[in-house]
Design a binder for these strands. Sequence first.
DNA 1: CACCGAATCGAAAATATCTTTCATTCGTGA
DNA 2: TCACGAATGAAAGATATTTTCGATTCGGTG
Lengths: 301, 301
Amino acid sequence: MTQDVKESFGSPGGSLAAKVRTLAPSMTRSMQRVAEAVADDPAGCAALTVTGLAELTGTSEATVVRTARLLGYPGYRDLRLALAGLAAQQQSGRAPAITTDIAVDDPIADVVAKLAYEEQQTLADTAAGLDTVQLDAAVTALTGARRTDVYGIGASGLVAQDLTQKLLRIGLIAHAHSDPHLAVTNAVQLRSGDVAIAITHSGSTGDVIEPLRAAFERGATTVAITGRPDSAVTQYADLVLTTSTSRETELRPAAMSSRTSQLLVVDCLFVGVAQRTYETAAPALAASYEALAHRHRSASR
Amino acid sequence: MTQDVKESFGSPGGSLAAKVRTLAPSMTRSMQRVAEAVADDPAGCAALTVTGLAELTGTSEATVVRTARLLGYPGYRDLRLALAGLAAQQQSGRAPAITTDIAVDDPIADVVAKLAYEEQQTLADTAAGLDTVQLDAAVTALTGARRTDVYGIGASGLVAQDLTQKLLRIGLIAHAHSDPHLAVTNAVQLRSGDVAIAITHSGSTGDVIEPLRAAFERGATTVAITGRPDSAVTQYADLVLTTSTSRETELRPAAMSSRTSQLLVVDCLFVGVAQRTYETAAPALAASYEALAHRHRSASR
DNA sequence: CACCGAATCGAAAATATCTTTCATTCGTGA
DNA sequence: TCACGAATGAAAGATATTTTCGATTCGGTG
C-alpha cells in the first residue's frame, strides 16, 4: 500500500512514537538512532537544527533528512514544526494542578497561576449566580434616577468609587460615600425615584446598612450588593445582587474574591445603564476620553 | 539557542493574541499587519516561510523578522515554531465560544456572560504575560522597604488604594497618592531602600510619572505597573510589571480590563509579601479581622 | 580469502531560507 | 515648504536544509 500519509501537525501525540515503532524495522541503523531521539524528546529535538540533531545522534544531516522523509514529512523543516506542535500539546495536556491553596513556600509563579485561576473561578461563579431579573431592575432604576448614592467601606468602598466614577462618565449623578455619618446625612436627602446602593460582602456592616436604611425609609430604590443574600442589609433592599463567596484561606483573604465578584456586578450595572442611555452615554464616554488625552504625554516608541 | 517555550496555561493561543495587543501600540504600521496575520491564523502562518508571510501581508522579509523580534523571539524561525505549537494546542483544545462584542441591544444575561468571559480572559492573559522574575524582585523590594508609596490616578488610583490597604493590613508602611502635588512632595522624602510604585495603564500619565521619577532619582526602588512596557513611565522604573491590554469596545472601556489586570498584579504582590513575612503577616491579618468584627452586627435570620 | 554488488552513509555542493545592511521613502513637526 | 528621523523593502550576507555523489560497509559468492 502506498503511504500517502497526509499527517499534518496536530496529530495525536502517541502517533509519532507509534509511527517510529512501526517503521523502525524498515529503517537503517543510523535512521533508527535519529527516530529514537525524536520519539524520546520531541521538545528537545524541535529546538535543534538538522546539524544539531545529526551531531546529537552521531549521524549526518543527510540521514536526518532521510528519517524525516520516512516518517512522512517533506523534509526536516516540517518534521521540526510537527515536533514543536507535539511538545506544546504535551505540555498543555499536563494538569495545572491548581486545586491546592496557596502555600507559604509556593514559588511566585505558582502564586500567580493560583490567584488567576481562583479569580477566574470567582467570576464564573458570580456570573452563574447573578439574578438577571434583579439586575435588570437595578439597571432600570439607575437609568431613571435623579441621583444615585453608593455606600461601601474598606475594600467595598473602592468598588463603590469604581461604580461612581463610571456612572459619572456617562452623565449620571452619582456619589460614593465611605464616611458613615456623611453617608446618612446624604441618604436622608433621597426620595422616591432616587437610587441607593450598598456594597458589603458580609451584609452586616452597620456603617453601610444605616444609610441604606435611611434611603429605604424615604422611598428611594435600594440595592444591596452582597455575598450574603440573607443578611441584615437585605432587609432594606428592594433589589439584591448576590456576589459569590469563595473559600477564604490564610494567605488569600476573602476580600480578594469578593472584590472581584463585586466589580463584575458593578461592571454589569454600568454596561446595562450605558446600553439604555446609549444615545447620551456614547458621546459622554468619548468626551471624557478626549478630555484626558492632553494629560498623557505621547507614548514613546 | 531557542528560548524555552514555557507558554503557561491560560487561554489557548490567547497569550499570543494578548502579546500582540500589548505590543501593537509600539509597532509600526507594517509590523502591525504582520502581527495581526500571525494572531489571526497561527496555523496558517506556521506553514509559511518568511518570504511567504511577507508577501501575504504585503511587506518585506525584514519587517517580518522585526515583528518576530518584537514579539520576543530571536528570529522568525522561532516564532514559526511557536506558532506551530500554538496551532496544535488550539486544535486539541476547544474553541472559545464568545467572540462578539457587547451590543447595544444585548439582553442583560448576555452582558453578564460576555463581561465575565472577557474578564476571565484578561486574567489568563495577565498571568501568562507576567514576568515572574520582575515580580519576585518587586516582592523582595517591598518586603525590605522602610516605606512604600503608590501612585495612581482615576481607575488606577483605586487599585493603588487597594494595594495600600492590603499592605497596611500586614504591617507594612504604605501610602497611596492620587494628588499629583502631594505625591511628588512625598516622593522626594524617599531614599534608597524605599519603594515607589506607579500604576498607569497607558504608561504616559504625567501626574503619575513625575512622582515616580522623583523617587527614582532619590534612589528608591521604583516599580511600574503598566500595560505599555515601552512607555514613558518605564524610564524611571527599576522593575516593570506588565498588565494585559484587551480590545476596547464602545460599551466596554479599556479601564475595565486594565483594572482587572492591575488588581491581579497587585494581589500577586500582596500574597508574595505575605509569604515572605508570614511570621508577622498571619497574625496581623488575623488581628485586623478581629478588630473589624464588632463593626458587623451578627447576620440576621 | 578475494571479489562483487548493493545498501548505507556522510562530506560537501547546491539550494532554500533566514538575517542584516543600507539606501530610499514616508510621515511629521518646525 | 523644508528638513529630519523613522519606517520600509531590496538586496547582500549568513545559516539552515536538501541534494548529490563518492566512500565505506556488509553479506554473499566463487
